[in-house]
């Protein structure tokens, strides 16, 4: 397996995966109820997503998009956003 050294040359991609807004987020609902129990009465709906960071030899949005489509996100239930971290 290729190892990427922790040098200044390393590129990083950050991917935010979230459940489609039309779908009920059970985990988010539990977190909302917990926050309200802690006294944060201003809390309304909460939605929980996933943040994935990937080290890359070089950043290519097209390649990262392919990774999302092939494994990191499920288009049936999720949406994703890609960012390059500099």
């Amino acid at each position: 397996m290729a190892r990427i050294s922790q040098t200044i040359d390393v590129a990083r991609a950050q991917i935010l995966v979230t459940l489609k807004p039309s779908l009920l987020d059970s985990a988010g609902r539990t977190v909302a109820s917990s926050l309200q129990n802690l006294g944060f009465t201003e809390v309304g709906e909460v939605r929980v997503g996933k943040l994935i960071e990937i080290e890359l030899a070089e950043f290519s949005e097209a390649r990262v998009k392919e990774m999302c489509e092939k494994l990191l996100a499920n288009p049936v239930i999720e949406r994703f956003e890609i960012k390059e971290i500099v």
């Binding site: 459940l19 009920l24 059970s26 985990a27 609902r29 539990t30 499920n74 049936v76 239930i77």
Partner: peptide
């Protein structure tokens, strides 16, 4: 099987958590 695309749809956390 859903994740493999052999069946339509997906399975999420139970509604009642």
């Amino acid at each position: 099987l859903c994740e493999a695309g052999l069946l339509p749809g997906a399975l999420l956390l139970n509604e009642q958590q």
